[in-house]
Amino acid sequence: MKGLIKKDLFMIRSNCKILLILFIVYLIMTIEGNDFAMFLLPFMSIMLMISTFSYDSYNKWTSYAITLPNGREKSVRAKYLATLLIALVTTIFTLILLIAVSYFKTNTINMEEILENMLGMLFGIFVIQAFMYPSIYKFGVEKARIGIFILVFGVAIIGGVLSKLFDFSKIADMFKFLNQYSLIVIPLAMFGLLYLSYKVSEKIYQKKEF
């Protein structure tokens, strides 16, 4: 399995230079006061992993991988572990960004706020990936990409409309108590979701024919 993780990391290696340049640009933008820039890097990590799926499918690696002694389940596991690794790296880079912003803006480092921002961002990435990976294994990368964008925009639009029509503040209040546990609840939720997604992907891939 180590070999399969290596494969994904080698595949994104060619994008490292671009990532480094983007990181510097984001760093400057963030220091200049554009807070949104810090979310671009994690977004890039999603795109990088999707690009590995695209290359896999273009060169029919997915069928070739079955001929190797790893077994189907390890192929899927390797993809999720590579995702976690990339997320770890982007987290570290983003952490540097957030600390830099906090320091340049206020001359102090607000670790609690930084950690909350960080978790929010990671949660966002993992939710997208948790839905996207099983769809890729089931329908292929092109259809899954379109599907996930429709899903994200659909949820955003429906959520927006519903929030205008109904008052959700009472429901939100009911869950307010969770806020104090956010540093525990959010990681548990996102890893739980990713694990569930991994299990679904594995099941799909086990049955898949090429």
């Binding site: 070999g3 494969k7 060169n59």
Partner: peptide, 18 residues
């Protein structure tokens, strides 16, 4: 059906060793 085309022959060695 083979390795993704952005890899190099040296990568294949490193991957297959594992």
């Amino acid at each position: 059906m083979f390795f993704p085309e952005i890899l190099m022959p040296s990568d294949i060695d490193s991957i297959m060793r594992e």
